[in-house]
């Protein structure tokens, strides 16, 4: 997907995320992120790993523009997230897909309605929704379960619905926050295969996790955070758990 047509070019065409010395402190004291600088290119699959309190959640929240950096510059999809106006945030977020550890599905609505919900709230015409939703449900292997309520699905299936919901608006970047955190190893690998397929189709995938097996098995770019600082960034690495 092409970058939004904006007057000022803030980043290179092949970049989707640029962080320049980004720090984030919630209160005076130890920063949650400190002097983080990185670039993520279009079509990359990136793991962001680290223990609890390493700054992974802050990293995702910054990319979603839920919070603003205390210092440094953050550019995502040619939007300057330090300066973006509140009314422009919805338009920016439509370029992102988000998947959470706890799925965050609407329990009172069935699979079809959960996915269609993502299209309706950005005002996609009904005819288009009826075409897009079955297609994306087929992609995640849930075409036959479109009438089921989330409560009737397994954890893996619920995460697939969440992925379908994140994908249906055709995002440029998919942010996955511990998507396998609530799943058994088999379901986790299924979800990873699905994320890899999505990445192969051109979507940039950024996944926050602390699952060593998955990171080691996938051999993708791995950024390791410790106490808010990037301690390593390997092009095709494994889980860096030295010291």
């Amino acid at each position: 997907m092409a970058l939004p047509n904006r007057k000022k070019k803030l980043m290179e065409d092949d970049e989707v995320i640029v962080m320049e010395n980004v720090s984030k402190s919630y209160q005076a004291g130890i920063p949650a992120l400190s002097n983080v600088s990185l670039k993520i290119k279009k079509g990359e699959f990136v793991f962001v790993v680290g223990d609890s309190g390493s700054g992974k959640s802050t990293f995702i929240k910054l990319l979603l523009r839920e919070i603003v950096p205390t210092e440094g510059n953050l550019y995502v999809l040619n939007y300057n997230l330090n300066k973006i106006k509140h009314r422009k945030i919805p338009k920016f977020r439509r370029n992102l897909g988000v998947v959470f550890q706890d799925f965050r599905l609407l329990k009172d609505r069935n699979v079809y309605e959960n996915v269609a919900f993502a299209q309706r709230i950005i005002q996609v015409p009904g005819k288009q929704i009826r075409k897009n939703v079955p297609k994306v449900l087929a992609t995640v292997g849930l075409a036959g379960k479109y009438k089921a309520k989330p409560g009737k699905l397994s954890g893996g299936e619920q995460q697939r619905v969440a992925i379908a919901r994140a994908l249906v608006n055709r995002p440029t970047v998919l942010l996955a926050d511990e998507p396998t955190g609530n799943l058994d190893p088999n379901n986790s690998m299924e979800i990873m295969r699905l994320l890899e397929e999505i990445n192969n189709a051109g979507t940039t995938v950024i996944m926050v996790t602390h699952n060593k097996d998955i990171v080691n098995a996938m051999q993708k770019r791995v950024i390791t955070l410790r106490k808010g600082v990037i301690v390593s960034d390997h092009e095709r690495g494994g889980y860096d758990d030295e010291d």
């Binding site: 009314r87 919805p90 920016f92 977020r93 439509r94 609407l106 919900f117 709230i121 950005i122 608006n169």
Partner: peptide
């Protein structure tokens, strides 16, 4: 919060 993450405007929410 889901609506906001997906990109719904304040008005639509």
């Amino acid at each position: 919060s889901i609506m906001k993450y997906i990109g719904a405007t304040d008005f639509f929410v």
